[in-house]
Computed example of a mutant assay.
Amino acid sequence: MKPLVSICIPTYNRVEQLKITMESIMAQPEFREGKVEIVISDNASDDDTEQMGRQYAGQSDHIVYFRNEQNVRDRNFPLALSRGTGILRKLNNDTLCLNKDTLRLLCNLAEEYQESRPCIFLSNGQGKGQSREHFSFRDFVVTEGHYVTWIGGFTIWEDDCAALEKDTAGCELSLWQVRKIYETAYRKNDIVVCNQRIGRSLSPAKKDVSYGLYQVFYVNYMKLLEPYEQNQALSAEDMEIIQKNLLINFFTEWMINWELSMTDAQYSATENLKELVSKQYRDKPYWKEYQKLYRRRYHFMKMVNKLMEIKNFICRK
């Protein structure tokens, strides 16, 4: 029988995190019952990913492993989804460890919406309203904002996967999942946002953001929204709301981490994130008020960071 759900995992050189992610899925009854399959799409890793992937695939008929001949970068997202066979297919970060009831949620969504097949997005607890909400295209874009960039929230129905491996527009912007979900949401104009927490992210040894956070999450992201402003699906006021939310809810944390060197992230050597964000937003009417917010968050995160250093020092004693 065709599985209800395919968990499609594009991966590259994260064998330790992938193993934990896999175990969190395999432990759930819906996987053991054959309702859920796992698809590993290995982007030509040079660690032990291939050995582990083939070992898992040999242990279960509900796990399939594919290895790309070369690293195709973001094109691995549509590839992973095209390799699934489930009615509903979910992209899953190789660092996303799923909660114990997440497969049941996904199977329920697949069964409940199998006839109408709306666009489904998993916000992982970001929503402040009901556990499940229906949106029009405009309300979805404005409400969810930059959260749609998270690949772990992306789902697609099998009948939207025709020739998906060739559907690579947006990969050059490092935002294929955003282009695809907006395209699908606009066409259907019926989006179900599930606010239930579905999992927790495992920290990779070194998070690489050297591609440029401002370039991808402002320049490229806004470029994908432009056609919807041009066809009046989004208004100029909507675009301003999206930009403001991006500043407050996305760039603030990254800029503070960058200033305090609080993370192991590998930032771009040429992109001065704070300078670029300041240049883009400093003429906005809310900029002065935002600077006060930034300073409060900066000092709070600096204090938290110091307390963590003290705690770690005591624990090493």
Rank of each mutant, 00 (worst) to 15 (best):
D94R: 04
T95M: 08
C97D: 13
C97V: 11
C97Q: 13
N99T: 07
N99Y: 08
N99E: 13
D101Q: 14
D101S: 13
D101R: 12
T102Q: 02
T102C: 15
L103H: 02
L103I: 12
R104V: 00
R104K: 15
R104Q: 13
L105Q: 11
L105K: 07
L106Y: 14
L106I: 07
C107F: 10
C107W: 05
C107A: 10
C107D: 09
N108S: 12
L109T: 06
L109E: 10
L109V: 10
A110I: 03
A110M: 02
E111W: 05
E111T: 09
E111G: 06
E111F: 06
E112T: 14
E112Y: 00
E112I: 00
E112H: 08
Y113S: 05
Y113A: 03
Q114V: 07
E115L: 10
E115N: 13
S116Q: 14
R117T: 09
P118E: 04
C119I: 08
I120L: 03
I120E: 11
F121D: 08
F121P: 10
F121M: 11
L122P: 05
S123T: 15
N124C: 03
N124A: 05
G125W: 10
G125F: 09
Q126E: 13
G127T: 08
G127L: 09
K128A: 10
K128V: 06
G129F: 12
G129Y: 01
S131W: 03
S131I: 11
S131P: 03
R132W: 01
R132Y: 08
F135H: 15
S136K: 05
S136Q: 08
F137S: 00
F137V: 05
R138M: 06
R138N: 10
D139E: 14
D139G: 05
F140P: 02
F140Y: 11
V141A: 11
V141F: 01
V141R: 02
V142I: 13
V142G: 05
T143H: 07
T143Y: 07
T143M: 00
E144F: 00
E144T: 13
G145W: 05
G145Q: 09
G145F: 05
